[in-house]
Design a protein around this nucleic acid. Structure first.
Lengths: 147, 147
DNA sequence: TATCAATAGATACTGGGTCTCATTAAGCCC
DNA sequence: GGGCTTAATGAGACCCAGTATCTATTGATA
């Protein structure tokens, strides 16, 4: 059990402090746990990893982190809405349906395309939500190896 | 209270019958109620409109209709997942953040763009989920008139 | 129209999330 | 460092959407 939180977790806490929220030990624990996730997670996942914390505390911290934008929500293919560390700003996710991992989709410019198509429907675009499902590189490789 | 269900509702029922499901009076009621919706709705909305039906029955019918593809799920901007009449096949929605109405986004070919971008991430695309938010024509017009 | 599986309805239950309220502990000022 | 103020915590009640179970009903078919 490390006492010191890692760099990523520290960033989360700093963001909260910048907004005037106190840095408390439950929040450090939640930040650390989130920083350790390598795929989308649920509040229950965190609860399992932090049995000493109160239920409400976990939900509250999570909500706070989503509001401040350091954690974002991800829509899984089955409609389940989970959480994930967010790299600031607008981005999309590539979700592997095999191993559940998630990577950020960079350099995807659908904005222009959407703008154009929605305009043709008389629709004034203000935002969008996109999730992409498929198989990540390492799962594709495994598949090939198994055959 | 119309006895006869309208054409749209009849389509829903026919789809169920095609799949071997019985045409029962609760299902007729649900189909009719869904056909009357003009924006995404929740199970609770239906329940409010069909107080005579059992809770479970409404959920079951809804689930059935989603499985057969005549009703689809829509993700609202706040993360709320609701239901909506579905036009067959893959499509996206233009959701008006003002009046809550929804129209289908036709002629949007993001598939090719996504295919290309995900490939560059070593990702084998299998599906995607896209919702578009903004203001529909009539809400834009109202806005202009109000100024 | 009798039969029988599919369906319905009542209701208990589940799981994720929120609310309340008394207690604790950060952060700040001296 | 010690006390003060207020935000944050934790326990637990509560809420709400959705599911499971079980008995009664009903639609389709013979």
């Amino acid at each position: 059990m490390r006492k010191r939180v890692n760099a990523l977790a520290e960033q989360l806490l700093e963001t909260l402090e910048e907004r005037g929220y106190r840095s408390t030990s439950p929040r450090r624990a939640v930040a650390q746990a989130i920083a350790n996730q390598d795929k989308p997670f649920t509040a229950e996942d965190l609860r399992g990893q932090l049995p000493a914390l109160g239920r409400a505390t976990i939900f509250r911290s999570l909500k706070l982190l989503v509001e401040t934008g350091v954690v974002c929500r991800v829509l899984l293919e089955d409609g389940d809405l989970q959480y994930q560390l967010s790299h600031r700003g607008h981005h999309h996710h590539l979700l592997c349906v095999e191993c559940g991992s998630s990577q950020d989709l960079l350099g995807c410019d659908i904005e222009a395309l959407l703008q154009q198509t929605s305009a043709s429907h008389g629709f004034e675009l203000s935002g969008h939500w996109l999730e992409v499902y498929g198989r990540c590189r390492s799962c594709s490789v495994k598949e090939l190896a198994a055959v």
